[in-house]
Amino acid sequence: MKQEAPQGVADYAPIVFPGLMLLVFFVLPFGTMIAVSFFRRDQGGFYTPDFVFSNYERFLSPFFGNVLGFSILLAVAVAIACVALALPFTFTLSRMPRRPQVLWLVALLSVLSLSEVIIGFAWSTLLSRTAGITNILVSMGLMDAPRALVPSLGAVLTAMIYQAFPYTVLVMYPALVRLDPTLLEAAKTLGASPLQAFFNVVVPALRNTLVATVIMVFVFALGSYLLPQILGRPSHWTLSVLITDQAVYQSNMPFASAMAVLLVLLSLALVGLTSMIGRKENAA
């Protein structure tokens, strides 16, 4: 279908409402945040309008560099783990008969209905010493005494993967359902074992989907705020936790804004880089 170019003002009418919403609820707050990030903080007060770079200069300290680096690495780890787990799972799911497929999808969707708070506390209970899964291991005789598994990096990762996994499956699912099953069969007739066929045929055919999914889960995990606080030690806190700390408890809005701006810019840069690599490989 050929789309005609808008002729007059009236043709732009359908986008007025979304445009307005975007302006009021995204462009203006974001613009305010960028502006505030250049303001000067008043000790014990709020801030006064100014144009200083002192808020950004604070990033150069090793402490913030570490937090930023940890946040990105955590998000990358969650993204890669989610995709690595979800790909074989979704592949198997898409080859199942209709009924179990629907049951699995409903179960996954129900995980999406849980709030981050509930997921966090559920895992902290599951991994606790008094009521956690180690008690089961003890009763099975595999462990001597119950142990607390929180707070730890493992607990943070587990809960974040648990939270992002349904999204990952749902993003991959349509592409895997559309994948021509004869591609795998063709590889088998040519002598490829099922595992070889999967890596030689399914993975390359889904390359773009996989890249897009990694980016999506990465961005999703980068904003993670509650889970690192509930399940991790202070050293596992992400930049989002730090931003809240600065904004709410230290009432240092300019510095919090500067961190938020940096986080947005960094995620945009990483997303852009990934899609650029994807395009280059596609062209080759």
Binding site: L183, A186, T189, L190, A197, P204, A205
Partner: peptide, 29 residues
Amino acid sequence: PTHRRNIGMVFQSLALFAHLSVGQNIAYA
């Protein structure tokens, strides 16, 4: 199993591997 039967098969959909060149497709086996 199929991959140990040493057969060659042409599918109705052809099932060519789109991410490989003509030569790589033929050389796959």
